[in-house]
Write a protein that binds this DNA or RNA. Sequence first.
DNA 1: ATACACTTTTACGTAACGTCAATGTCAACA
DNA 2: TGTTGACATTGACGTTACGTAAAAGTGTAT
Lengths: 255, 255
Amino acid sequence: MEYTVHKLAKMAGISTRTLRYYDEIGLLKPARTNSSGYRIYGKAEVDKLQQILFYKELGVSLDRIKDIITSPSFDILKALREHREKLLDKRKQLDILIANLDKTIALHERRGTMTDKEKFEGFKQKMIDENEKKYGREIREKYGDEQVERSYRKLKDMTEEQYAEIEKLGNSILETLDLAFEAGDPEGPLAQKAADLHRQWLCYFWDSYSKEAHAGLAQMYVDDERFTAYYDRKRPGTATFFRDAILIYTGMNKQ
Amino acid sequence: MEYTVHKLAKMAGISTRTLRYYDEIGLLKPARTNSSGYRIYGKAEVDKLQQILFYKELGVSLDRIKDIITSPSFDILKALREHREKLLDKRKQLDILIANLDKTIALHERRGTMTDKEKFEGFKQKMIDENEKKYGREIREKYGDEQVERSYRKLKDMTEEQYAEIEKLGNSILETLDLAFEAGDPEGPLAQKAADLHRQWLCYFWDSYSKEAHAGLAQMYVDDERFTAYYDRKRPGTATFFRDAILIYTGMNKQ
DNA sequence: ATACACTTTTACGTAACGTCAATGTCAACA
DNA sequence: TGTTGACATTGACGTTACGTAAAAGTGTAT
């Protein structure tokens, strides 16, 4: 059975242009051409086209498809696995984009409905964005994408009162921590109060609190110089002191 | 503060080419050019570039960004929502691609580790079991216990090469059938090729082939909803189409 | 004979730049 | 003051996988 471009294209559900293109790049050449230069495809070409379309459906580039179907020694499995990795990366990127879009849409929505709170909302969004930009990777690596997503969603859904509460809490932590640092004892009541305030603060962002995660975050405050700089900005050593206090608070200090 | 292309590009983390391109398409024109034609950007342009990059991060096209930032009446929310929908579609497509890739990789892996006799045997046994569980009774009723026993024994005794061949045949049947169904003619070459492949496939299981049995099985593909569901999973009507093709192939269509 | 369906090659357009190439400008140093 | 090196300009081609003409020839039916 022989086919002209039109027939083969219709059968395969593609355009004649595509067939001519495949001919042009040497992916699928016709069996022969007739006296008028018309392309004539045979059975073998139909099979080959089937294969090509199969891999194309998987999102493989024509270049790679060429490798796959022309050289029999080509490591198909490896190529497919690599391709899979690429697709996974792409999807991750998409997820991030969608999450950001959601945030942006929420921002615009609120701006449209609540002109009064515009500034407030803007600030919240900015805080999310900045947080993401600064610590996004580390936090994501340590706690996983989902945890971060939930945390952000929680922040987005907060009421103004809750937000004010968080801010107040944050200030309390710093004040108490300063006093505690002056007292010098991470086991003392002030240091333990600071740790407890910090736990409360965390609970605004985490939907499940665990001593282990709390202790882990405390360790990060010491390991990551940006956190350290933040807590040490008044007096060096505060970050380490705070970590010790939290380790004692969580009971994670005895390993 | 005024910036030349290089400075602004470095500050924003993009290339100078990008800035020139944005100028070219009228997305971001410099505040002025100096006597030598150098592009000079001011504070307003910095802000605008920030906006542009923000929307770009969201995956919005430069064309749309232009709309968004140039006309203040542009319905940003609507545009963002539509964009979100597009991204969701894209992700869905990606998920399907990945799932198909997984299946394909699994298939190739099985073929690759075919030398490992254990896995091969295990899979063969699994196939027999599944077959027995699914269709055992019907097949036994229609063709008798002995026939089924012989068929299973045949499958168990197969060599790896034969087994791979069967798998390949099975896939060929489905692929060819799909194409044939699109072509729409059960008498056509593709449909008849599918029927012929199916006969070859059957001959791996039956130790005596007959047109009558083949036609009978084809009818069962339509009568039994599980077979129908299998062949119709892509496009409804495929099972019936396949039966018709086989009836023509076996010459059993004129009763 | 004419209409109509189909074929061919050639070539530009797509999105968002990367990457030369050829040429001009500016600040600094010997 | 001349030269060097870093920076600027415009112009143009390359990228993917075709879509979409345009111009011209071919096949078949009426």
